[in-house]
Design a binder for these strands. Sequence first.
DNA 1: CTGAAAGCGCTAACAA
DNA 2: TTGTTAGCGCTTTCAG
Lengths: 273, 273
Amino acid sequence: MGRPTMNDVARNAGVSLKTVSRVVNGETTVDPGLAARVRAAVAALGYRPNLGASMLRRNDRRTRMIGVLLTDLAGPFSAAVHRAVEDEARARGVHVLGGSTDDDPQRAQDLVEAFARRHVDGVILMASAVVDLPSVVIDREAGIDQGMRHLRNHGHRRIAFVEQEVHAVFALPDPPTAILAGSTPVTIEVVRALRERGLRDRVALVGLGDFPAADLLEPAVTVVTQDPGATGRAAAGALFEQIDGGTPGARTISIPTTLIARGSGEIRPATGS
Amino acid sequence: MGRPTMNDVARNAGVSLKTVSRVVNGETTVDPGLAARVRAAVAALGYRPNLGASMLRRNDRRTRMIGVLLTDLAGPFSAAVHRAVEDEARARGVHVLGGSTDDDPQRAQDLVEAFARRHVDGVILMASAVVDLPSVVIDREAGIDQGMRHLRNHGHRRIAFVEQEVHAVFALPDPPTAILAGSTPVTIEVVRALRERGLRDRVALVGLGDFPAADLLEPAVTVVTQDPGATGRAAAGALFEQIDGGTPGARTISIPTTLIARGSGEIRPATGS
DNA sequence: CTGAAAGCGCTAACAA
DNA sequence: TTGTTAGCGCTTTCAG
């Protein structure tokens, strides 16, 4: 025998299947005596309703489950977005399926497809694709402009935008006077590299994404922040608006960015270089 | 009309329902001509199988979905565990429902119950509870001992274990000579507090959990690490062993800890105090 | 190789 | 207030 079903409960309580259904779903039009018997049977058998079966028959056809596809569930930005989405979802009795795309469009596509087979009510994704499901796209391109502008305003003309290959930058014949780091891990790598080379007070640095100890480093690190919590809340809000079918709702969430000047980004290039 | 069903595809392709089922499930005992017609109909209608319905009828009764309950999906440790679990799950074609408990047992209980209604195949949880589902518990208590021992070995007798209330510690009549910080965010708060009070070279600090910039602070922060990736992989491995019904598998995963001495934890108490 | 019938666990619509 | 019947979309079983 597998898990007990509604039928088992009905038999045990000596009532009809439908009465059990009513009690389980909290309908108030059931005789208190019967309801008590049903609840006793539920407890005795360890019965738990099967949401999959109920959703199959139900009219609204909602699974009360959404998907969230982020670059990397382990990364600080994705993780914070995820949590914010979770909180919004929880408030609505909705569960969240998570997935990391590693910025691979094919993987994102596969995950969307897989979630669709599960009949998720909608999808939030940090990418640029569009899918044929209720969905909200988080656009993370913003922020680069702001960082670049800041460095230019401080006199820099040779600015490196660094992804992964941190050390290659310093091997260039005409090395940059300023660095814009593409993510938090990269920013920290750059700090480490600058120290090793004794350049920490000579090369400017702006990081994309804030991190907890940024203000405690020397020099403190200037960053362009994108509030992941606000982003997640906004995306979830827009998605649920779509799902609940009111207004169409926003399909793209752009993240407002803020530059926090702390020192490293305000270093000026050496004159006469 | 809602989404097209297998019946719609069958009608469109001029075959029986069962033939569509065979093609969709990749059975090879179908005439290639019929299979091609079915595939064409699937594409034309934009048909997608309904996993919920199929799981209802299927014999193995697996949802191919597990739940992961962590302290905080946004926290670095939880997030890294989550990602590792996701990777293990993906390799098995399993999806992951995530949930933050904020270390509230009631909330953990509620989430387990909710996931059980969805018939998840199992649950991983970072807590100390046990549930009547295939499950693996991650025990995070370890590490405290190791940190304490380290500080005592360096001569400390008044050691504060700090959770949240960072500032209260310094208001004590007889303040500690060493601090053990319970989590990464707390560690960073303590660093900040020590600096504000000019105590950064006088009070020892050991943090539970490593963080990316720990070695770049001054003094660099001594930490007790728990490898979240290894933890997640181990927990997922143990859970899938249970689910696949081979050996019973471990029900509790203890995280091996390592102390990384970087400076802050090796400060000795002022003599004669 | 293909199909018809039954039924997974549950809720909708209707009847008593 | 309670129960009966039908059927959600799919897989199983068994017959052709």
